[in-house]
Design a protein around this nucleic acid. Structure first.
Lengths: 209, 209
DNA sequence: TTGTCAATTGTCAGTGACTGACACTAGCCT
DNA sequence: AGGCTAGTGTCAGTCACTGACAATTGACAA
C-alpha cells in the first residue's frame, strides 16, 4: 500500500473532477442537454481526454453506480453460508444501503448520488444502459449463488431464476422510488423491504384477499 | 375496412422494405457495421426519409418485435379469468409462440426474425434498448394482471412483482436461447416451459437436492 | 542533476447518427 | 383541371466518438 506517485494522483483527481462536474450538470440541466464539451471545458481538459477516461458519455453517469454494485456483490459473497439464496441477497442489499454513505462521499455527496439515480431512471438512454449493466451483474450473482448452494449454474436453472426474480423486484422498487416525491435513502430501503416481503405471495397460484 | 389509397399502400411498402433490408443487413454484417445510409440507399430513399419512418436506427430493429409483444399482450387479455396470474402469463406466451409464424411472415420470414432476435441479444446497444422496451411492456402487464385480480396496482405490490419475476425468467431464457447453438422456435418454447416450472422451487428459502 | 523513456494530453480531421428548414413532387379531392 | 397537403429530397448543422500525430510531463536510471 505505497502512496501512488504524482502521475496517478493527478489522474485520479481529473477523473473525480469529471465525475462530479458531469453528475452536477446532468442532474441540473438533464443528460441530453449536457454536451461532453461542456463537461470537458468545465474541468479544463480536452474532449479527447474525457473519452480517454470514459468510453461513452453514459459511462460517466455510472461511475458511482459501479462502486455501489461492486459493494453489493462483495456483501453477498460475505453472507453466512447458512442463509438461503433469497435471504442472502436480501440481507446483502439492505446491508449495502446502510453503509453506502461512507463509501460514496469520497467522490460525490450522497445527495448527488441519489439525484443521479433518479436521473438515470428518468432518462431513457440511461435507463436502458442501466438495465443492461444489471443483467451483467446478474450473471455474476447467479454464479455466486450457485457456488454457495453447490450447484452447477448451467445445469440447475434455479440460481439464474432466483437472481432474475430478485433483480426484477429490485428494478421495480428502483423505478417506483425514482418517481416518488420523497426520494431518500430511508424510503428506498423501506420500499425494497416491503416489496421483497411480497415476492413469495405474489407467485402463489391464486391470490386471496 | 376500405382499401387504403395508393398513398397509404406506397408508405406501407416503403416501410416494409426498410425493415426487411435493415434486418437482412443487420443479421449478416452486424448492427454496428451497417449504416443508415446503406439501408436507405438499398431501398432507394434518402436518409432523411428513413428517419421519418423510424426515430432511431435501433427502432427499425424492433419493428417485428413490436408486433410480437402486442400479440402477447392481447393473448394475455384473452385468458380466462379463472387462471391465476402466473398461469395466465405462462399460457399467453406459450400460445403466442405457437401461432407466431402466421403473424410474422407478412413482413419478414420467421427465420429472419429468429436471427434478428439473436442479434438483439448479442448487440449491447440493442440489448439495452430491448430491456428498456420490456420494462414498458411490464407496466402494461402489471395493469392487466391487477384488473384480472381486481386489485389496485398502486396499493398491492403483487401485480408488479409477479410480472417482474415472470419477465425476469423470460429474459434469462431469451438470453440463454440467444447463446445456444440451435436457436429454433421449438427450443425456446421448451426452454421457457422448463424454466417457468422452476420459478417456485427457486424461491424456496432452502434448496435441497 | 540530467537525460531518456513512456505515459498523458491536446489538436485535427473524419465518420456516423440525427434534426430543422425549405423547396419540390405527387396523390387526393372538389 | 387545379388547388391542397402529405411525403420526399437536399442541405447545412450539431453532437458523440475515433484514429493519428505531435507536444508535454512524470518516472527513473546514470
Amino acid at each position: 500500500m505505497t502512496v501512488p506517485g504524482l502521475r496517478e494522483r493527478k489522474k485520479q483527481r481529473t477523473r473525480d473532477a469529471l465525475v462530479r462536474v458531469a453528475l452536477e450538470l446532468f442532474t441540473t440541466q438533464g443528460f441530453d442537454r449536457t454536451t461532453v464539451d461542456e463537461i470537458a471545458d468545465a474541468v479544463d481538459v480536452s474532449q479527447r481526454t474525457f473519452f480517454r477516461y470514459f468510453a461513452t458519455k453514459e459511462d460517466v453517469a455510472f461511475a458511482v453506480q459501479q462502486m455501489v454494485e461492486e459493494r453489493f456483490v462483495r456483501a453477498l459473497a460475505e453472507r453466512p453460508a447458512e442463509e438461503g439464496p433469497l435471504d442472502a441477497m436480501r440481507n446483502a442489499v439492505l446491508g449495502s444501503w446502510d453503509t453506502i454513505g461512507e463509501a460514496i462521499v469520497e467522490v460525490v455527496p450522497v445527495d448527488l448520488h441519489l439525484r443521479t439515480y433518479q436521473m438515470i431512471e428518468s432518462t431513457p438512454a440511461l435507463l436502458a444502459a442501466h438495465l443492461r449493466r444489471s443483467t451483467e451483474m446478474e450473471e455474476t450473482l447467479a454464479q455466486l449463488i450457485a457456488e454457495r448452494e453447490g450447484v452447477d449454474v448451467d445445469e440447475d436453472p434455479r440460481p439464474r431464476i432466483a437472481v432474475a426474480a430478485f433483480s426484477g423486484v429490485m428494478r421495480v422498487t428502483g423505478q417506483l422510488w425514482g418517481r416518488s416525491e420523497n426520494p431518500t435513502l430511508e424510503s428506498i430501503r423501506a420500499l425494497t423491504e416491503h416489496y421483497l416481503d411480497h415476492l413469495a405471495p405474489a407467485l402463489e397460484p391464486h391470490w386471496r384477499s
